[in-house]
């Protein structure tokens, strides 16, 4: 038996918004410690790693480990049926063929149940990728809205954005047929609010180029968290991380563009 309950179904809606443009289907690994998803986009350029800890749920029970293949489009359709204030419960039996989504209104007068068929995921199981969080040359924390804005604005100039990070701050630049654009963000000296701060932790400067298309998918996670964390080292994938309240995080890994 698997059962996971979240008082705020809005969190799950936002999580789906954050992955639906990158993934068509994904395996949800459920265990005693929580729910984990790791999946690459079709082009194998980016990897999405989603973690929802069991202690972050309002109720969580997982008697045996389950791997459930789910269509992200179908899941999105079902989550659209949840009211903004509804509670959501995910429920499956052991060896399930279906998963149940149960939405309950705050006054408990409306109870809606949706059943979704699981998919047999033929694709090779990824295993869980471990990364060393401390080994990045630059780690930047900045307002997620600002990051979304910069990706959107610079996407108008070309297909990719170059991130250059030094101890002064981070510089984003793009160029194309009609011109070029540069946005520099300095480290904030004293931000009034923590969520408005720009913080740079640098071991050595980095300069990396990334595809706008993927960055603009990642920023869909913006509503999950006021701050985004960008971890970078030269010649390795960017890690773009959004915390999901007290329950977990979503991390996107994006392969850089390399010189021919």
């Amino acid at each position: 038996m698997f059962e996971a309950r979240l008082v705020q179904s809005a969190i799950l809606k936002k999580v789906l918004d954050a992955i639906k443009d990158l993934l068509t289907e994904a395996t949800f690994e459920c265990s005693d410690s929580g729910i984990q998803v790791q999946a690459m986009d079709n082009a194998h350029v980016s990897l999405v790693s989603l973690n929802l800890r069991s202690d972050g749920f309002d109720k969580y029970r997982c008697d045996r480990n389950l791997s459930m293949g789910m269509s992200i489009a179908s899941m999105t359709k079902i989550l659209r049926c949840a009211g903004a204030e509804d509670t959501v419960t995910l429920r499956a039996v052991d060896n399930p063929e279906n998963i149940m989504f149960i939405f309950e209104s705050p006054n408990k007068e409306k109870l809606a149940e949706y059943e979704m068929k699981l998919i047999n995921m033929d694709q090779e199981h990824l295993g869980i990728i471990k990364t060393k969080e401390t080994s990045y040359s630059c780690v930047v924390k900045m307002p997620s809205q600002e990051f979304s804005r910069i990706c959107r604005d610079l996407s108008q100039f070309g297909e990719s954005i170059t991130f250059a990070c030094s101890k002064e701050g981070i510089k984003f630049s793009a160029s194309g047929d009609f011109g070029q654009a540069t946005v520099k963000l300095a480290q904030t000296a004293d931000a009034d609010k923590e969520e408005e701060a720009v913080l740079v932790t640098m071991q050595e400067p980095v300069k990396l180029t990334f595809s706008c298309r993927y960055l603009n998918c990642f920023v869909k996670a913006g509503p999950l968290c006021a701050q985004v964390q960008l971890s970078m080292s030269n010649d390795v994938p960017l890690v773009c991380e959004y915390k999901i309240g007290d329950i977990g995080h979503i991390r996107y890994y994006l392969a850089p563009k390399i010189d021919d």
């Binding site: 980016s46 990824l126 295993g127 990728i129 595809s211 563009k257 390399i258």
Partner: peptide
Amino acid sequence: KKTQNKIDAYFKLQ
């Protein structure tokens, strides 16, 4: 000129 690398190249997928 830059080309898009694949993420597989960076992770040993089990």
